[in-house]
Write a protein that binds this DNA or RNA. Sequence first.
DNA 1: ACGTTATTTAGCGTTAAGACTAAATATTAT
DNA 2: ATAATATTTAGTCTTAACGCTAAATAACGT
Lengths: 102, 102
Amino acid sequence: MARKREPKARLDAYEAVFTALAHPTRRRILLTLNFEGGSMSAGEIAAIFEHAWPTITRHLRVLVSAGLLHSERDGRSRVYRIDRRRLDLVRDWLGWFSKDPG
Amino acid sequence: MARKREPKARLDAYEAVFTALAHPTRRRILLTLNFEGGSMSAGEIAAIFEHAWPTITRHLRVLVSAGLLHSERDGRSRVYRIDRRRLDLVRDWLGWFSKDPG
DNA sequence: ACGTTATTTAGCGTTAAGACTAAATATTAT
DNA sequence: ATAATATTTAGTCTTAACGCTAAATAACGT
């Protein structure tokens, strides 16, 4: 039984994405990934920030669970790749404020 | 000495706006204001939500300090008006992910 | 002046976010 | 098997967010 796009999940998606974008470090991670070609290893990402590595790991997990990043193992490192389409959720939300309300 | 648009303030603006948008109640306040014509009194806004009024007042304050709302007194009530332009900050930020990075 | 309506401020308790260090896991190399 | 590298998980701490109730302020009507 394939249910397609139930509205509850849609709401949770907004929630997850907006929450993920609320932290400056997470926004910087996204921007960095964006400009570095879309994917980087955890180590490369962690190296950019002053924070301890586990702190970055946690931020990465938040971004992944919001669907803004995907990750896969590559040897002994893990590569994170940005999913730019996921940002469409935010664009869609902003769209409500462009349509003039009758 | 009028300095125009110093970058630090710009950063704080992003911070404030993204933080404000992180809470579902605050997003709903914005959407409600948007569809109700752009401005409502505190009481009208508070009536929509199940929360106690002071809780809504606090959310309104967060939205105001992010520049997403402006308010002015009107008799004994206070009217909140949405500033849709402020959402351009988010659109601008999203813009970075559309430009293909050379 | 006094009461009523509309809203905010103060103060408190609970939950969750975000940071850290130390320990655990996974993968490759010797 | 052992060691080295890369990353995550566990556990703890501190601070900030969010909710509430009760009290304070502001403006209007009588």
